[in-house]
């Protein structure tokens, strides 16, 4: 399973805002850390804002703040704001169900989808933050989203 760029940006932004939840961060600030397009990130932040996971603070020094429940919000909750994850995403069911081969292949693909969905749905923002801490390399900044620029 590969997450769409918007989903990745959303996860990164939420994690950053949760890690620095006493602050208000601008789109430019978050985009700079992850070396991604501020334009693309701004659209993502709008969606996150409508979902209630983040709130925008207007005025001088304004920006975004984390507004969700980090122990209850999972990666799946974020990803599903931008794409269908798991069985709901299978648009090939009609074609697949015409033959035995198609139905067998569909069963295998659904197994993969179920596992992916379960994994995303079991990792909260708080859990993810602890996981991030295990992966952080001192002095190194994120730069993995080059494909998301522009």
């Amino acid at each position: 399973m590969k997450l769409q760029i918007s989903s990745q940006l959303a996860v990164f932004a939420v994690l950053e805002l949760y890690a620095r939840r006493e602050e208000q961060l601008s789109v430019a600030e978050i985009a700079s850390k992850y070396e991604v397009s501020p334009h693309h990130l701004a659209k993502v932040m709008n969606v996150l804002g409508r979902s209630g996971l983040v709130r925008s603070v207007r005025g001088a020094g304004g920006g975004y703040q984390f507004a969700g429940n980090a122990r209850r919000t999972t990666l799946l909750d974020i990803v599903e704001l931008f794409e269908n994850a798991g069985p709901a995403a299978r648009n090939d069911e009609e074609l697949a169900e015409r033959t035995g081969e198609g139905r067998a292949l569909l069963q295998v693909m659904k197994e993969i989808d179920d596992i992916a969905r379960s994994t995303l749905g079991s990792i909260t923002i708080a859990t993810m933050k602890r996981l991030v801490a295990q992966h952080e390399v001192p002095g190194k900044t994120a730069s993995a989203l080059g494909a998301g620029r522009g």
């Binding site: 999972t74 179920d114 596992i115 379960s118 749905g121 990792i123 909260t124 708080a126 859990t127």
Partner: peptide, 12 residues
């Protein structure tokens, strides 16, 4: 896989 409470707990 559907046991959300246990899954969240052990993941945490």
């Amino acid at each position: 896989r559907d046991s959300r409470l246990h899954m969240l707990f052990f993941r945490a």
